[in-house]
Structures are given as structure tokens and as C-alpha cells.
């Protein structure tokens, strides 16, 4: 241990204290964002931070006492938080381009890339859906095992009435709020519970498929089948599609945990989650759109032919978007991906 040419702790602290206190003051001021500081202070901050970092290294090398080292650690840590803080990143170049890229390229690509999981999710949803529908058509009381009777009866009456009266605007706004709260919540939960090896997502998909199928079958068995199909056709492709995509994303993170390949399980999970997040976000946006359509259009008094044509067009557009959007575009550098 050679300390012959180093200062004593007291002399070191006395000499350097000025800069430490300056950095401390600047850090405190910059807590609310580096941008709020005057330009001169911002310029001063960086060299100050580096020189205090050097002091810390010197203090550790010279084996100064723990309180001094702790103080410098605290000081540099606080300054580090400001220097590398969310404010400091500022406007990343092309953030707008990034959002556009996410919708036009990244989202449909991610769906295609994980098509195995998405198709499995679709099967987990639509097979119980068809089953629930068919079983209920054969025996309407089957629906009561899946969905409470108290909920089914008023629903049926509402559909039986048809849409001649339309919906008043306030009612529509209320329903929009409800659809967002309920449906987006279900989709996000359906994704999150995929962490348990995909089982949570699978459960949600099957359960939702079965009950929606049962409702459809029951309403149809009571003679309002045409009405409910006309109601669903407008927003159905977005809404059911989004649930399937969210569930597929959940299956995907679950599978990345079960079969991580060459990676450690945690790393595999983290990577997959970052890749699949765009699909979850896309599903959420689809559900917002579906909520608006369902609240203000599906229940409106527009003629049923128009509703069917609009719904069909939307379905075709959605399929084309997921299948073809973003093909042939070059992938930009993905800075956020962990190496």
C-alpha cells in the first residue's frame, strides 16, 4: 500500500469541499429536470460530476474513512440520477417516426413473427366460442352454466328490441367508458397472466370464448339472433381480434419461460416481453377503437345492411393490415433491445 504522495483526509476534504457543495447544490436544483437549469449551470454540471467521480475514486484508493466515501457515493449517485435521468434524454431523434414505425411496421410484423402463438390463441378462443354457441343453440339452458341467467335475460330483451330507437349520446358515452374499463382491462390482464407459463392467458381465452359464444347462442335461440349479429359485426373484428392478440402475447411470454432455448430463462422472458409489448399496446389501441365503434355505431339506428358492409370492410382491412403491412421495410436500429 503506497500512500506516501496522497493527501490526508482532512486536507483532501478541505481542498475539494467547494466543488462537492457546488455539485450538491446543482443536483438539488436539477431534481425537477436538467432542462430547468440555466444554460451555464448545465454546462458546469458535467465537468463537475466527472471531477467528483474522480474524487470518489481517489478517496477509495487512498482508503479515506467510510463517512467521506459514503458522502461522495451519495453525491455522485444523486448527480448520476440527474445526469442520466429521464429528463436528460431529451427528445430522442425521430420519436415521432418511431411511433409511426410502431403502428405501420413493428406491430403487424410482431404479430406475423409470433404467428404460432397468435394462431394458438385464436384456436383457444374460437373453438370454445363455437362450442358454446352450438351447445346453447341445441339446449338454451347450457348458457346458464356459463353466464348467470340474471344477466342473460335483460340482454336478450335489449337485443330483441332492435336498434330503431338508436342510442342517445349520453348512453353511448357511458357505454364507451364501460367498454374501455372492462374490455381493455380484460385484454391487459389476459396478457399479464401469461407469465404463469401461458396458463393464465389460456384460461382467459377459453373462458371469454365460451361465454361470448354462449351469449350469442342464447340470444339467437330466443329469436334475436339477427340483431345481435348485426350489433357485433361492426366492432367484433377489432374487439375479438384484440383479445386474441393480447392472449397470444401472454402465451408467447409464457412459452419463452417454459422453453427458453439457449438463453437463461429470465433473459429469454425479458427479451420476449420487450419484443411482444408492441402487440399488447396495439391490442389496447384496437380495443379503444372498438369501444368507440361499439358505443356510438353498433347500437345506432343505421340500417343493418350498412352496418354489415361497414363491419365486413373493417374486418377485411384489419386482416390485410396484419398480413401485409410493413413487409419489405428495413428494420431500424433497435437501441432499446438488450444485448
Amino acid at each position: 500500500m503506497s500512500v506516501a504522495s496522497t493527501l490526508t483526509e482532512k486536507a483532501f476534504a478541505d481542498r475539494r469541499r467547494g466543488e462537492w457543495e457546488e455539485l450538491d447544490a446543482l443536483t438539488l436544483e436539477a431534481r425537477r429536470g436538467l432542462k430547468k437549469l440555466p444554460a451555464d449551470d448545465v454546462l458546469r454540471m458535467s465537468p463537475l460530476y466527472r471531477s467528483v467521480c474522480a474524487d470518489l475514486a481517489a478517496a477509495q484508493a487512498a482508503r479515506y474513512s467510510a463517512p467521506l466515501v459514503d458522502y461522495l457515493l451519495g453525491l455522485t449517485a444523486a448527480a448520476h440520477t440527474v445526469m442520466y435521468g429521464p429528463h436528460a434524454r431529451g427528445r430522442e431523434d425521430g420519436r415521432k417516426g418511431r411511433v409511426r414505425h410502431a403502428w405501420l411496421v413493428a406491430f403487424p410484423r410482431a404479430v406475423r413473427r409470433f404467428k404460432r402463438e397468435m394462431l394458438l390463441a385464436a384456436a383457444l378462443f374460437f373453438v370454445p366460442f363455437a362450442l358454446g354457441c352450438l351447445l346453447t343453440l341445441r339446449d338454451p339452458t347450457f348458457a346458464f352454466r356459463v353466464v348467470p341467467e340474471a344477466m342473460l335475460r335483460p340482454l336478450t330483451e335489449a337485443y330483441a328490441k332492435g336498434f330503431e330507437g338508436g342510442r342517445e349520446a349520453g348512453e353511448g358515452a357511458f357505454m364507451a367508458g364501460f367498454y374501455v374499463y372492462n374490455n381493455v382491462g380484460i385484454a391487459l390482464r389476459c396478457f399479464a397472466l401469461g407469465i404463469f407459463g401461458g396458463l393464465g392467458s389460456a384460461f382467459y381465452l377459453v373462458q371469454n370464448g365460451l361465454s361470448i359464444g354462449a351469449i350469442l347462442g342464447y340470444v339467437a335461440s330466443q329469436g334475436a339472433g339477427e340483431n345481435i349479429v348485426v350489433f357485433i359485426v361492426g366492432h367484433g373484428s377489432l374487439e375479438l381480434g384484440a383479445i386474441v392478440l393480447a392472449g397470444g402475447s401472454g402465451l408467447s411470454i409464457g412459452w419463452s419461460l417454459v422453453a427458453p432455448g439457449d438463453l437463461p430463462r429470465l433473459v429469454s422472458l425479458q427479451q420476449r416481453a420487450r419484443e411482444i409489448l408492441v402487440v399488447v399496446a396495439g391490442a389496447a389501441v384496437m380495443l379503444f377503437m372498438a369501444a368507440a365503434i361499439e358505443a356510438f355505431w353498433s347500437g345506432s339506428s343505421a340500417p343493418r345492411e350498412v352496418k354489415v358492409v361497414v363491419g365486413g370492410t373493417l374486418f377485411l382491412l384489419l386482416v390485410a393490415y396484419v398480413l401485409f403491412a410493413g413487409r419489405g421495410e428495413t428494420e431500424p436500429d433497435d437501441a432499446g433491445r438488450p444485448s
Binding site: E168, A169, G170, E171, A173, F174, M175, A176, G177, F178, V180, Y181, V184, G185
Partner: peptide, 17 residues
């Protein structure tokens, strides 16, 4: 209960979300 009030409850649900 006016339709504006219903819209208000829709807003409450959005806030909950």
C-alpha cells in the same frame, strides 16, 4: 337523469381505467 350525467359516469369509468 340527463344524458350528460350518463356521460359523466362514463368518464368515471375511464378514470378508473
Amino acid at each position: 337523469i340527463g344524458s350528460a350525467a350518463k356521460a359523466g359516469f362514463g368518464l368515471v369509468l375511464l378514470a378508473l381505467f
